[in-house]
Design a protein around this nucleic acid. Structure first.
Lengths: 257, 257
DNA sequence: GGCCAGCCCTGACATAGATCAAGGATGGAA
DNA sequence: TTCCATCCTTGATCTATGTCAGGGCTGGCC
């Protein structure tokens, strides 16, 4: 699949690629290729060695981990996310599996090239560091949510975050199947159902993928959202113009819960 | 507290500082200072803005997070660890609190200087990226452990990891109070007690801070350790000489559970 | 030595969450 | 249209974990 000029321009806008100079960018793109995958494709299984940095241009990708026949979803990525950057930087094997959830267009950049240019373009290396730092902080947030909150509270905060990200609407649309959301939130589908049911007392009405938050204030009193856990608006949106709001990057650290 | 030549040499051996050229290192050290803190000192509270990169030369530091009057320990650091690197790179506020657990000697490096030299010394920038990538992967491991395993299994794997790190001895010494370990493992002290009690069936005998693993094979059958979750030997030790074994760095990603 | 605080263990109980089983809704394929 | 698979929900039950209370042990301190 040929890389269109428009794709390049979109990718170029990624924060960590904006720091790269033109030569660096050219070299990165040189050996890169764009591929379209159907839904349900396993791009990478945990333990695999990693040769490419992946950049999701369109679609949805799920990052998951397994142990002892159990599986959990660690993050759900939307367009303009990078993934497995950490494994690429360390030239080691992946700790998570990556699977497409919708049909997805993915740009693959040679890991070896990435490592090489990082060591020649300091500004770009700094950009990569910032990207990794953002991913790290996203995981810290997830970990705090996981260890400090109960299931209902995690769900309540997820809903509040979605409400803000979808533009302060009364009725939000769940972007994923409920069983997927359950795994992301660290509970069983049955329990997620019951959690939704308990939120009825707080003005939450569920209708398939549509969730109406009737009394946000009441829900917030339960959820107790916290700026040091919940990333209501991705960092690069803050202080930015409205243009960015249209299709902001859903990077790993910003989609995890 | 003056920075001794020996301290500098130790710090210089940190993987991410080994990549720095001499001039970069000099500039980093220039405005740095070394400070000794008693046990129980709060170095940083979550939400604080961060002006320095901290490097723990001696002692123990705990990284924790709170929500709704609950607290959880996210990592326990030993000598030659860096911490809050991610916040420094992004020049933003800390998501975790940092507290000394023992008397600790800590080297503090100007965050502004760090960010500046990263953008001038590409090799150093790459080293920082590697450090951050390692931290990220450590958290991924923790998250998988937290979401996929039950409390007893987390404890069993913790013990197996400690046994290997302490040199395959039969009796290991718990490096922290049990209530601290409980919080790190994501359970209450009462539950940790009971978890230890259940492990008696698997040959585990507890005597204060001493834990004897009588039948490692049996314990392993329960624990099912996994290279993609448990970091039995820190990455930089692998393939390295014995010299490194003496006092390996206990970096954030390697001490979390 | 005696006292006290902190840590740890244990038991009884409460709650959260997982599991099992069944049935309803939905939407695509034959 | 009918059939079937998938997803979701709900109820019953079981298990894991948290909470509360009590008591033992230890080590510092008067």
């Amino acid at each position: 699949m040929p890389i269109k000029e428009a794709d390049l321009e979109r990718v170029r806008q990624l924060p960590f690629l904006k720091t790269a100079n033109d030569d660096t960018f050219r070299r990165l793109i040189q050996g890169a290729f764009l591929q379209r995958f159907p839904a349900g494709t396993t791009l990478l299984t945990e333990g695999d060695s990693v040769d490419f940095l992946y950049i999701l241009l369109d679609g949805t990708v799920e990052l998951s981990g397994t142990w002892n026949d159990k599986e959990t979803i660690l993050a759900l990525l939307g367009p303009l996310s990078t993934f497995i950057l950490a494994a690429v930087v360390l030239d080691t094997s992946a700790l998570m599996s990556a699977t497409t959830r919708d049909r997805s267009d993915i740009l693959m950049i040679s890991g070896e090239t990435l490592r090489r240019v990082m060591q020649e373009d300091a500004a770009f290396g700094f950009g990569v560091s910032q990207e990794l730092a953002g991913c790290y902080r996203g995981l810290v947030r997830s970990m705090k949510s996981q260890k400090l909150r109960g299931g209902i509270e995690r769900l309540a905060n997820y809903l509040i975050t979605q409400r803000i990200r979808q533009g302060d609407v009364e009725t939000i649309t769940l972007p994923h199947e409920k069983r997927v959301l359950a795994s992301l939130l660290g509970m069983t589908p049955e329990n997620l159902s019951r959690a939704f049911a308990s939120l009825a007392d707080y003005g939450v009405v569920v209708n398939g993928p549509l969730v109406t938050i009737g009394r946000p204030v009441v829900l917030k009193r339960l959820a107790k959202p916290d700026a040091l856990i919940d990333n209501h608006t991705p960092e690069e949106m803050r202080g930015g113009g409205k243009a960015r709001l249209e299709a902001w990057p859903n990077q790993p650290e910003r989609m995890t819960v």
